[in-house]
Simulated assay, not measured.
Amino acid sequence: MDRAALDALADKRRPATRLGWGVQWATVRMLGVFLTENPLAVPSGAVAFVAEQPDPDPACLADYGQRPTTSYEHAWQIRELPGYRDFGAGEQEVRR
């Protein structure tokens, strides 16, 4: 994760929340989409890779999203990071 992501991650208290937030960040960074409907639909190897930075046990991802709005809140937070914007804001640029 880059410095902005690690700084945003620092206020997450639970290991599952830190890892879930990191996985959300990675999926939007690498795939260009948020997995808000099913944030656990990530290959275990990808979860293990992400877990190396915030350092929780990859198995704790199973506890992520016990509160249904958590993954959506994390997606909103990630959208606020520098360098990210809604597709609609850049659609014309992409079309050109």
Rank of each mutant, 00 (worst) to 15 (best):
residue 28 V to Q: 05
residue 77 Q to S: 09
residue 31 L to T: 07
residue 74 H to I: 00
residue 89 A to L: 12
residue 40 L to H: 08
residue 15 P to V: 00
residue 36 T to R: 00
residue 23 V to L: 11
residue 52 E to S: 10
residue 1 M to V: 02
residue 51 A to K: 01
residue 50 V to E: 03
residue 15 P to K: 00
residue 38 N to Q: 06
residue 76 W to T: 08
residue 40 L to C: 09
residue 13 R to P: 13
residue 41 A to W: 05
residue 12 K to L: 15
residue 45 G to N: 02
residue 93 E to L: 02
residue 95 R to C: 08
residue 68 P to N: 07
residue 72 Y to A: 15
residue 30 M to F: 14
residue 25 W to K: 01
residue 46 A to P: 06
residue 2 D to T: 06
residue 85 R to K: 03
residue 53 Q to H: 13
residue 39 P to D: 02
residue 16 A to C: 04
residue 35 L to G: 10
residue 13 R to F: 13
residue 70 T to Y: 13
residue 36 T to P: 00
residue 62 A to L: 06
residue 12 K to G: 15
residue 78 I to P: 07
residue 57 D to R: 08
residue 70 T to I: 05
residue 11 D to I: 03
residue 52 E to A: 07
residue 27 T to F: 10
residue 55 D to P: 12
residue 77 Q to D: 14
residue 60 C to E: 07
residue 13 R to I: 09
residue 61 L to I: 05
residue 83 G to S: 03
residue 21 W to T: 00
residue 66 Q to P: 10
residue 9 L to I: 03
residue 23 V to I: 13
residue 64 Y to V: 03
residue 83 G to I: 02
residue 75 A to R: 00
residue 94 V to P: 14
residue 17 T to Y: 15
residue 1 M to K: 10
residue 90 G to K: 01
residue 52 E to C: 10
residue 22 G to D: 00
residue 6 L to D: 03
residue 10 A to R: 04
residue 8 A to I: 02
residue 58 P to E: 00
residue 9 L to A: 08
residue 54 P to M: 08
residue 22 G to V: 04
residue 36 T to Y: 07
residue 45 G to M: 00
residue 92 Q to H: 12
residue 95 R to N: 11
residue 81 L to G: 00
residue 81 L to F: 05
residue 10 A to V: 01
residue 37 E to P: 08
residue 81 L to T: 00
residue 82 P to E: 03
residue 61 L to Y: 09
residue 61 L to G: 03
residue 66 Q to F: 11
residue 14 R to F: 15
residue 71 S to V: 01
residue 65 G to T: 01
residue 9 L to K: 00
residue 35 L to H: 04
residue 48 A to N: 09
residue 94 V to D: 11
residue 44 S to F: 15
residue 53 Q to D: 13
residue 69 T to S: 09
residue 28 V to E: 05
residue 80 E to F: 08
residue 86 D to T: 07
residue 82 P to Y: 04
residue 59 A to H: 10
residue 26 A to M: 06
